[in-house]
Amino acid sequence: MSVTKAELVGLIYRNIGFSKKDATDIVEAFFDLIKSGIVRGEKVKIKGIGTFYARAKKERLGRNPQTNKPLMISGRKVIVYRAGTSLKKLLKENAFDAPSKDDGV
């Protein structure tokens, strides 16, 4: 089961004991703040998870794989995520032998 906003809301609402409205608003605001930080060009560093930031990509010549025609790919911004050391370590140390089918690829 994947973790969604709804689950995080439930966690705050049930386990910590805030109203459903506050819980919903806080979860929403939490991700909005991260987003707006990235948009402003900040590096958003969340201990335990990692760092998010935007990087500009230059325009480049690509190719339409279907028609094989060359075309210009416009410059754009992409989000870069760098996993934090503690998360990398946690996953490395708790290595699973066999990936199960429904895991993200």
Binding site: S2, V3, L11, I12, I34, I49, P99, S100, D103, G104
Partner: peptide, 23 residues
């Protein structure tokens, strides 16, 4: 507690899917 839950999910090979943000 949000971050703990998210980290725990990744530890257990679960995905985190936040609409509007990413996964």
């Amino acid at each position: 507690s949000m971050l703990d839950r998210m980290i725990g999910a990744l530890r257990d090979n679960d995905r985190i899917e936040i609409r509007g943000f990413g996964s």
